[in-house]
C-alpha cells in the first residue's frame, strides 16, 4: 500500500499536465492572497518549519499489519493546524521539494499533484472541519471527530480529482468508469487511515497547545495561526 501516491511523469498526457500546472498556479496565488494577512516573507520561515513537519509526517509509515503500512497525505492536517490558506502552501512546498529533489512525483506532474494533494483536499477538509466544529462546539471529542471526518473525506476527494484528471488525459486503455470506481473504492478505505491519523495528531496538539489548532479559533477562523509570536 502506498499512499500518498505522487503522480509521476507521463501518467497524464502533456496538455492536461500543463493545464493542471496553470490551475495550480492560480490556486497557489489564491492561497498566497488569502494568507497575506498573517504569512509574508518575514514569517515564511515559521511556515517553512510546518512544511518540514508535514514532510516528516508523510515519510513515516504507520504499520497496518501483514507487512503493509499506510502514509499520511497531510493536507487536511495542515489546513486544520495552520489554516486553509497557509496549509496548502506548506503542502505545495513539500510537493515541490519532493518532485525536484527526491524525484517523488513527476516534474511535469507537479501541477496535478498540487491540485490532488494540496488544493482539492483542503477545499473539502476545511469546510467540513469548520462546519462540524461550529455546529457541535469545540470540545476535544468534537475536534477529534471533525478531524477524522475531514481527513477521510480529503483522501476521497483527492482520489476523485485524480479520476477526473485520468478521464481528461490518461491512457485510453482503461475504462474510465472502472478506474473511477476502483480509485474511489480503494480510497474510501485508505482514507480511514488518513482520518484516524489526522484525528490522533490534531487531538494531541489540541490537548497540549490548543492555540496552535487554527481550525478551532473561534473569532478568527480565517486568520492563520502563522503569526509572529510577539
Amino acid at each position: 500500500m502506498g499512499w500518498p501516491m505522487h503522480v509521476p511523469d507521463g501518467f497524464i498526457d502533456a496538455p492536461v499536465s500543463l493545464a493542471a500546472g496553470g490551475v495550480a498556479v492560480i490556486g497557489v496565488a489564491v492561497c498566497l492572497r488569502g494568507a497575506r494577512r498573517s504569512l509574508d516573507e518575514a514569517t515564511a520561515p515559521l511556515a517553512g518549519l510546518v512544511a518540514v513537519f508535514i514532510f516528516a509526517a508523510q515519510m513515516f509509515n504507520f504499520p497496518v499489519g501483514l507487512g503493509t503500512s499506510g502514509h499520511l497525505m497531510g493536507a487536511a492536517l495542515a489546513a486544520i493546524l495552520i489554516g486553509p490558506y497557509a496549509g496548502p502552501l506548506a503542502v505545495t512546498v513539500v510537493l515541490m521539494i519532493q518532485a525536484l529533489l527526491f524525484a517523488d512525483g513527476g516534474i511535469t506532474a507537479l501541477g496535478l499533484n498540487i491540485i490532488n494533494m494540496a488544493l482539492v483536499p483542503t477545499l473539502v477538509a476545511w469546510p467540513v472541519f469548520r462546519l462540524v466544529v461550529r455546529s457541535l462546539g469545540n470540545s476535544r471529542a468534537v475536534v477529534i471527530g471533525a478531524a477524522a471526518v475531514a481527513g477521510w473525506l480529503s483522501i476521497v476527494a483527492s482520489s476523485l480529482a485524480f479520476a477526473f484528471e485520468y478521464w481528461l488525459g490518461g491512457t485510453t486503455a482503461l475504462d474510465v468508469g472502472a478506474v473511477t470506481l476502483a480509485m474511489v473504492g480503494v480510497h474510501v478505505v485508505i482514507g480511514l487511515v488518513e482520518g484516524l491519523i489526522t484525528a490522533l495528531i490534531v487531538g494531541a496538539v489540541f490537548a497540549l497547545r490548543p492555540d496552535l489548532v487554527a481550525g478551532v479559533k473561534r473569532r478568527r477562523a480565517e486568520q492563520e495561526s502563522v503569526e509572529v509570536a510577539a
Partner: peptide, 14 residues
C-alpha cells in the same frame, strides 16, 4: 513568489 522561496529555504535548512 518570495513567500514560497523563503518557506522552501527554511524547509531545506531544517
Amino acid at each position: 513568489p518570495e513567500v514560497l522561496v523563503q518557506m522552501t529555504a527554511a524547509m531545506v535548512r531544517y
